[in-house]
């Protein structure tokens, strides 16, 4: 099956599932608009599915997708979210910056680069602190230190 046809099929199934979730709402006026939108989405998805079969799209060939790098970055972001409220926004941001630059950039990591990246992280975090906590007075989760 061609790419657009798969995308059309996924959108079609998703739209039907979303439509079914509105069934339990008793107030009909609250669902008129979303139902209308979903019906339009179903029609558009069906057209995309059809177009996927009729029109041959150009398949781009490029370098393979860096799945491992994606999973590492995704996990680092999730871990960053998980600890930011307990550790505090600034400490977790500092650690996240270091983790990203060290782990994803480990291929060219030397002692000098490690120091520079840690320094960049410290400066960036300090700028964030001045910007958000001092100038904009945003209340961020305090965590263990500040």
């Amino acid at each position: 099956m061609r790419k657009d046809a798969i995308v059309g099929l996924v959108c079609l199934v998703g739209s039907v599932v979303l439509y079914s979730t509105l069934g339990h709402i008793d107030e009909p006026r609250a669902v008129t608009f979303p139902k209308t939108i979903i019906i339009i989405m179903i029609i558009l998805s069906a057209l995309l599915l059809l177009q996927g079969f009729i029109v041959k799209s150009a398949e781009k060939k490029g370098p393979g997708y860096p799945w491992l790098r994606f999973l590492i970055l995704f996990s680092l972001i999730v871990a960053y979210f998980a600890v930011s409220e307990s550790l505090g926004f600034y400490i977790s941001a500092f650690l996240f910056f270091i983790a990203v630059t060290y782990i994803l950039g480990k291929s060219d990591l030397s002692l000098k680069k490690a120091g520079l990246r840690a320094l960049s992280s410290a400066i960036f975090t300090a700028v964030l602190f001045v910007l958000f906590s001092v100038m904009l007075e945003v209340q961020t989760p305090r965590g263990v230190l500040f």
Binding site: L104, G105, S120, F124, L128
Partner: peptide
């Protein structure tokens, strides 16, 4: 790009949080 990835992600988190103080 490495520094940009980290900086944009952190700014996105701070910027989003700061509007309603909501995680």
């Amino acid at each position: 790009n490495l520094e940009m990835i980290a900086a944009v992600t952190i700014l996105a988190v701070f910027g989003t949080y700061s509007v309603q103080n909501s995680f």
